[in-house]
Simulated assay, not measured.
Amino acid sequence: MPARAVTALSLASCLLTALAAAGCGNSSSAGADPPALTKAQAQQALASFTEGANRAGRRLDRVALRGIEVDPQLSMDTASFRLRRVVRQRPPVLRLGQVAYYIPRMHGYPRWFAADAATGSGKQTVRHALLFTQAKAGAPWLLAADPYPMEAALSRVALDPDGFATPVDPGSKGLAVTPAALPGVHARLLTEGPGASGVSVLADGPRTHQTFEALRDGEQALAKRGITLSSRFSAAPYGVYALRTRDRGALVWYVLKQNEAYSAPNRGTLAVSGDLVGLAPARATRNRMDTTVLVQYLATVPPKGRVTVGGMYRKAVALRGS
């Protein structure tokens, strides 16, 4: 998260933004289990992260990120630091305000909690849906995900009389789609389009149908320049996390992996630019470029009806040229 303020965009991600482990803890009934941590401990975890993020940002220290983050956030912010080092631009000082904590009751490990926060002010305000995890007793709390919600999505989370949230098991039934199945459904829509099996559960929007349309338009635009682009999405091998909402639905964090393949018959047509800067030398590509992109999402899943995908953080994390 400390590295994202001026992240540039790749050819495909320009089109996207123009439009707009199983480790998830165990589900439990409110009050049946103790909270994952106290509010005071959550405040300390966030403060420690903020201090560490600013310290790492001042030196663009990728190694220091390992002490405050875990994948997928770690791989994404590490790639952002690589970009920033090339363009010689440090991230702005991280100041989180308007913080609200959503701490689930659960037993066992890994444990996790979420925080709603904002950076900036006025029209420059950016919301954050931070998700922290703890692998085992005594381990540090690390930032695992931070998609940018378009609105205060976490305000929908249900809280018990003591102010704690209820985790939703990824395989839970009684929802429009199970949280565990959501990444695969979303990936099919972005890869195959609205005619793919099971994707009608996703509401139209800038992170769903409009993204698919933008990718197809982008492929056609690149073809006119002699560049062939193919893009495929899949569920990334990271945890799916969910909290119960007041309408008995769920707020779900999940991650997709996007594999892009660019090719051109003429050398010099492809270039390492935009969001790809820092992942490989500028002259690394001749006729082909294969990239790996991670995309974090935050979605609202109702008991019935369509899923709304309202938050996203996208970053290219690997490039191979030939």
Results as ranks from 00 to 15, higher is better:
G31V: 08
I103F: 10
S155K: 14
A318S: 15
L202S: 06
Q296C: 00
A36V: 06
D247M: 08
P34S: 14
A64V: 04
A42I: 09
S28G: 14
G23E: 09
A3C: 11
A152H: 14
V295M: 08
L298Q: 00
A223H: 12
R283C: 05
D146A: 14
R267T: 10
N266W: 05
G138A: 12
S121F: 09
V86D: 07
T78Q: 12
L65Q: 07
H209K: 11
R66T: 11
R95L: 11
T166K: 08
P237V: 02
R85V: 06
V157D: 03
G171N: 15
A45P: 02
R58Q: 15
A42Q: 08
P194C: 00
K315H: 05
K39F: 12
A235F: 01
S172W: 04
G193L: 08
R58C: 07
T211G: 06
N266E: 14
R246G: 05
G321P: 03
A223S: 12
G205A: 02
R283P: 02
G57C: 07
A100K: 15
R85Q: 14
N259Y: 01
S230F: 06
S273Q: 14
Q220A: 15
R225T: 03
S121T: 12
R188D: 01
S75G: 03
N287F: 12
V126C: 04
C24P: 10
R58E: 14
L96Y: 11
L319R: 01
A100D: 13
L256A: 11
H186Q: 12
P237S: 07
A129N: 10
R244F: 05
D116Y: 07
A145G: 05
Y313R: 15
L229E: 12
A264N: 09
R66A: 06
R320H: 14
G198R: 01
L215N: 11
G249C: 07
R127D: 02
D116S: 15
I227E: 05
A32C: 07
A158R: 15
R244Y: 00
V307P: 01
L215I: 15
A100F: 03
I103L: 14
T78N: 05
K304N: 03
D116I: 01
D275C: 10
G310H: 00
H107T: 13
W141E: 10
Q44F: 00
F132E: 04
M106F: 02
V126E: 12
E69T: 13
R59S: 11
D33K: 08
